[in-house]
Design a protein around this nucleic acid. Structure first.
Length: 609
RNA sequence: GGAGCUGUAGCUCAGUCUGGUUAGAGCGCCUGCCUGUCACGUAGGAGGUCGCGGGUUCGAGCCCCGUCAGCUCCGCCA
């Protein structure tokens, strides 16, 4: 553990901070403090008892300082002998320079130490469930149960400090651009679209429920109607969906913003400026390309097989459908019709790997939903692989030419329905990312633009909105009336960095007539739109400015800037994968009386009765 | 809802493939010794439902079945 590198500056001691507990912070003491008498308060980080001399590493929010207790001070010496790790003490003493041989260069305060005149034990600590003064790996379950201890450890402590600073920087950046921060309700109504809601029963209205907002989406649009031209909020969002490494179950935070009288490009400029500012002032990382490249949904799926590509991975998917239109290999030939495709991905120089390498890759492809994974190794002695025997000589030649294949390469194939095949190939692209060393300090931002307005729902056999139903279709009313629905694009965009989706946003549809039409295409009659979104339409009927917005995920942004692989590492009190707070024991049962007041009767699933 | 990995001392792990005496190590904890350490050193000690239940076997930490918990992934996330 590299000690004393907490990111916080020493809090000022100028006013109000000198009291009976503390006059200085541990990380603040240096050569300049020589001769001062100080009072320090903090946690016993480590203790080294030499019998006739005791060293205590005292830790506070700013760092660590070594206390020395000498035997002449008999009562204090006795107190120090009995100290436990992580007990809280306040100690008084004087700052002395260490002799040259005893300076500790690994400690910011390593040039000095405090010779103790008195020690006050404020709180005695029991033996710990895991060490705090050590960053050794620890079971996640324990870390979550004793989160207050985990938060004392350097990495988590720094992450939380960083998060605070980032939030402050966002607030400053946006308020300097005349954005106004406005809080919106936490108890609101359930929205019919989107993720599952968290519901809150109403005591005063039996049988009715509030919902926690999945995002302040409708409120921020109403704020535009209300005439606030630039809104933002560090907004809590609640979605009852399953967790992932980059998805906190239950709740997360967005830098939610919305602007009126803007077009897509205006928003992009603001966002790019904000991200550039945050990266440059708060990290040592580099932005790969600025302004951020823009890739259409169609292109990003074709080339990277994902709408959140990690552009650092030096692999690109290629389309080889047309090479196999008349192929004797049925698996490929049968997927050359409209709506299907044959995709290929070349791994340079990986044609000579062991059989295990390809078998593992195929296993992964199956996990991703593929029927298998065709591949051809181009070796000195000729092409090799399970599908070689099905391909004609000229097909091999065409492939080599189209894909620029050289001896020693391997090419992997996927064939099937367009979107599914792209996604499987994208999954394989991520799988093969391990082959390469990605630059952790490179931030490869990009915009994904031109999302389709609608998609075909195979199960329901109908056309659905593919994203936010409030997005403006590109071409507005005219396009809704003239184009085939699945070909209509929306002013809907994502911002992606290193394979993580940071945000979705859109230019909104502020015109009731276009909205009714857009919903009609997705099969919602006017009456139903009025019933579901009447309040929005009503608002838009009273003078709504054109507007749009975006909402970058705060937690994910902190993750990226802090090189964390899991979102729990940037949240002070996260829940576990199954949405439980192991420290607070939430969710928990409530009393019969509470339920009665809320007019709730609980019916458990069969097996739990 | 589904798949995979993990579960042995307070913590981190070895031992499990190939069943066999009293289950080990480091750290932590407790009791001593030690006046310049900074992961202090040193001598000793305590500490175990091998996640839980069942089965196979003369014998199970180890093999089989089930189950629970944690993590990762798929589904889900307008």
């Amino acid at each position: 553990m590299i000690i004393n590198r907490f990111m916080s500056k020493e809090p000022t001691t100028a006013t109000g901070l000198q009291n009976r507990f503390r006059t200085h912070y541990c990380g603040q003491l240096s050569r300049k403090s020589e001769g001062e008498s100080v009072r320090l308060g903090g946690w016993v980080h480590r203790i080294r008892d030499h019998g006739g001399l005791i060293f205590i590493d005292l830790r506070d929010h700013t760092g660590i300082c070594q206390l020395v207790v000498l035997p002449e001070n008999e009562s204090q010496f006795k107190a120090a002998e009995g100290l436990h790790s992580e007990s809280v003490i306040s100690a008084e003493g004087s700052v002395v320079l260490r002799s040259d041989e005893t300076v500790n260069p690994r400690l910011a305060s390593g040039a000095i130490e405090v010779v103790v005149s008195s020690i006050q034990i404020e709180s005695n600590a029991h033996p710990l469930p895991f060490p705090v003064a050590d960053d050794m790996p620890t079971a996640e379950e324990l870390r979550l149960k004793y989160r207050f201890l985990d938060l004392r450890r350097e990495k988590l402590h720094e992450n939380i400090i960083f998060r605070s600073k980032l939030t402050a920087a966002v607030r400053k950046y946006l308020t300097d651009l005349d954005f106004i921060e406005i809080q919106t309700p936490i108890l609101t109504s359930s929205s019919p679209e989107g993720a599952r809601d968290f519901l809150v029963p109403s005591r005063m209205h039996p049988g009715k429920f509030y919902a926690l907002p999945q995002a302040p989406q409708q409120f921020k649009q109403l704020l535009m109607v209300a005439g606030f031209p630039r809104y933002f909020q560090i907004a809590p969002c609640f979605r009852d969906e399953d967790a992932r490494a980059d998805r906190s179950p239950g709740e997360f935070y967005q830098i939610d913003l919305e602007m009126s009288f803007v077009e897509q490009d205006d928003l992009f400029v603001i966002l790019e400026g904000m991200f550039k500012h945050l990266v440059e002032t708060m990290s040592h990382k580099r932005i790969a390309q600025f302004p951020f490249p823009r890739i259409s949904y169609r292109d990003v799926m074709n080339r990277y097989g994902s709408d959140k590509p990690d552009l650092r991975i030096p692999l690109e998917i290629q389309d080889v459908t047309e090479l196999f239109v008349n192929s004797g290999f049925k698996v490929f030939a049968s997927n050359t019709a409209e709506g299907s495709c044959v995709k290929a991905m070349v791994l340079k120089g990986m044609g000579g790997e062991s059989r295990l390498f390809y078998d593992k890759a195929e296993k992964r492809a199956r996990e991703l939903g593929s029927a298998g994974l065709a591949y051809i190794q181009f070796r000195e002695e000729g092409p090799k692989g399970p599908v070689v025997k099905f391909l004609k000589e000229e097909e091999m030649t065409a492939l080599k030419e189209r894909l620029g294949i050289e001896t020693g390469d391997v090419v992997f194939f996927g064939a099937g329905k367009w979107e599914k095949t792209c996604k499987i190939m994208g999954g394989m692209r991520n799988y093969f990312a391990d082959v390469f060393t990605l630059d952790r300090d490179e931030l490869s931002f990009c915009w994904i633009v031109d999302f389709p307005m609608y998609e075909y729902n195979e199960e329901a056999k109908k056309i659905d909105f593919s994203h936010n139903p409030f997005s403006m279709p590109q071409g507005e009313m005219e396009v809704l009336e003239s184009k085939f629905p699945l070909d209509i694009l929306a002013y809907q965009y994502d911002i992606v960095c290193n394979g993580i989706e940071l945000s979705s946003g859109a230019i909104r549809n502020h015109r009731p007539d276009i909205m009714y039409k857009a919903f009609e295409i997705a099969g919602y009659p006017k009456e139903e739109v009025d019933a579901r979104f009447g309040h929005m339409i009503e608002a838009f009927k009273h003078g709504a400015p054109p507007h749009g917005g975006i909402a970058p995920g705060l937690d994910r942004l902190v993750m990226i800037l802090r090189d964390e692989q899991n979102i729990r590492e940037v949240i002070a009190f996260p829940m576990n994968q199954s949405a439980q707070d192991l420290m607070m024991a939430a969710p928990s049962e409530v009393t019969a009386q509470q339920l009665e007041e809320l007019h709730i009767r609980v019916e458990l699933p069969e097996e739990e009765k």
